[in-house]
Simulated scan of single mutants.
Amino acid sequence: MNPLLKAEQAVLGSVLIEPGQLSRLDWLDPDHFHRPVHRALFAALRALRDRGHPAVAAEKSVPSLSWVTDAVNEAGRHVRGLTATYPHILISACPRSEHAPVYGRMVLEGAIHRRVTEHAVRLHQAARADALLGEVEGALHHADVLAEVLGDLARRWGTEPRPVAPVPVPVTAPLAPSVVLADRVAEDEQFLLAVLAERFGAMDEVVDWLRPDDFADPAHQQLYRCLGALHHRGEPIDRITLLWEAQRRGLLTDGTLTADQLTIICDGVGAGSAEWLGERVIRSSVTRTAGASARAVRSLAENEALAPGQLINHALHALGPLDDVRSRWQSANGLPSRTPTASVPSPARAHAALARSTPRPAPPPSARTGSMPVSTATRPLSRGHG
């Protein structure tokens, strides 16, 4: 049994039985339905309502033959496979037509999971393409689209979009780049570290916006931490002081770094711009972080146990690392920082929120069982308190 399919059938059946239920489903769109025939049928019912179909104003609790027939004919113009008997299956699948908003909320919940998954896949594909081309614009564009989609879905669901970390935080494996791409990134990182270690004042060009996590190689991350520590303390930087700092941190004894690796980096120095090389390193960090964020969002969206509000807020949190590295990449290139779009309340928000189950009104005092006050004089004394 597929609960989402049952919900789609129930919401369509409720509208076929009682056309007036459409006024309570204005926050639900045809695209929120998973099956194409359901999308076409819901769009057809809305189109008939907008044209002033007589069944809408009839206020009947039984299906109108013309309403059902006209809906099938209208939807049949846009989709194949819709038979004249299928609406009767939909009607029989609806337990109570007045529960249409709740059925619609179930449909919207399924649509939220599918849409977040779809845009996470697009972001991942764009990140891989940009990594191969040495660009970042495609990944950043799709990240912005995903953030806007999350905000729109939050307003439709009736909640405020805000980043919230999941508990526990899922561990996302790093993206495995191609051999050619990995070699190119490693060369850029080695060349940058060589320039930083040998050229006086080179750290001043990158220290404000380049972070150790922007390096793909763990050994290169630790070496950049060593360089940053020397720079922070105002000590001279060269291959000897770098080797000493690495030794003090235990990098040569725990296997993180070997003396040969350090020698290769320091002996491979040549003419180069630390700022230009650092920009290449942080550019690869943008695409790598975008790929990791996309995989984390997709993993969240595929978890059907997550409520839509949780999914949206956890997905926004997963995009946080990408926002951080993007702002530093913009600083490295002298670009203005992106200003987040203000959240504009949507009229559909209140209606979708009201579609949630509401507590039943409390019965009057006279109808409550055992509501008569009991005199303290007639109560039996508790044991031990006589």
Rank of each mutant, 00 (worst) to 15 (best):
P3V: 05
L4D: 07
E8G: 01
L16S: 01
I17E: 00
S23M: 05
S23V: 03
S23D: 11
L25I: 10
F33V: 01
H34G: 03
R35I: 05
H38T: 01
A40W: 03
A40Y: 02
L41E: 08
L45F: 04
A47I: 09
L48Q: 05
D50Y: 08
G52E: 11
G52P: 07
A55D: 13
A58C: 14
E59K: 15
E59A: 13
K60I: 07
K60V: 10
K60E: 15
V62Q: 15
P63A: 14
W67S: 09
N73G: 06
V79L: 07
R80F: 09
H88D: 11
E98Y: 14
V102N: 00
Y103H: 06
G110E: 03
A111F: 11
I112M: 08
H113N: 12
H113R: 15
H119T: 06
L123F: 08
L123G: 01
H124T: 07
R128V: 11
D130R: 06
L132W: 12
L133H: 15
E137M: 10
G138C: 14
A139P: 00
H142N: 10
D144M: 15
A147V: 05
V149Q: 11
G151D: 07
L153D: 05
A154M: 14
G158W: 02
E160M: 07
P161S: 04
P161R: 02
V164E: 14
V164D: 02
A165G: 14
P168L: 06
P174Q: 13
V180K: 13
A182N: 08
Q190L: 12
L192T: 02
L192P: 00
L193R: 02
E198A: 14
E198M: 15
R199L: 10
D204N: 15
V207I: 13
A219P: 00
H220Q: 13
Q221W: 10
L223F: 03
L223C: 03
Y224H: 13
G228F: 04
A229I: 07
H231D: 11
H232M: 11
E235I: 00
D238T: 05
R239D: 15
T241G: 04
L242D: 02
L243G: 12
L251Y: 03
A259G: 12
A259L: 09
D260I: 14
T263N: 13
T263Q: 15
G268N: 05
A271Y: 14
A271T: 11
G272S: 06
E275N: 04
W276Q: 12
L277K: 00
R280K: 08
R280Y: 09
R280Q: 14
V297R: 00
V297I: 10
R298F: 02
S299G: 13
N303R: 06
G309S: 15
G309E: 15
Q310R: 06
Q310G: 10
L311W: 03
I312F: 08
L316I: 07
L316Y: 03
H317F: 13
R326E: 07
R328W: 09
P336C: 07
R338W: 13
R349H: 02
A350T: 09
A352I: 04
A355L: 02
A355G: 11
A362C: 07
P365C: 04
S366I: 06
S371Q: 12
S371D: 11
V374Y: 12
T378N: 06
R383N: 13
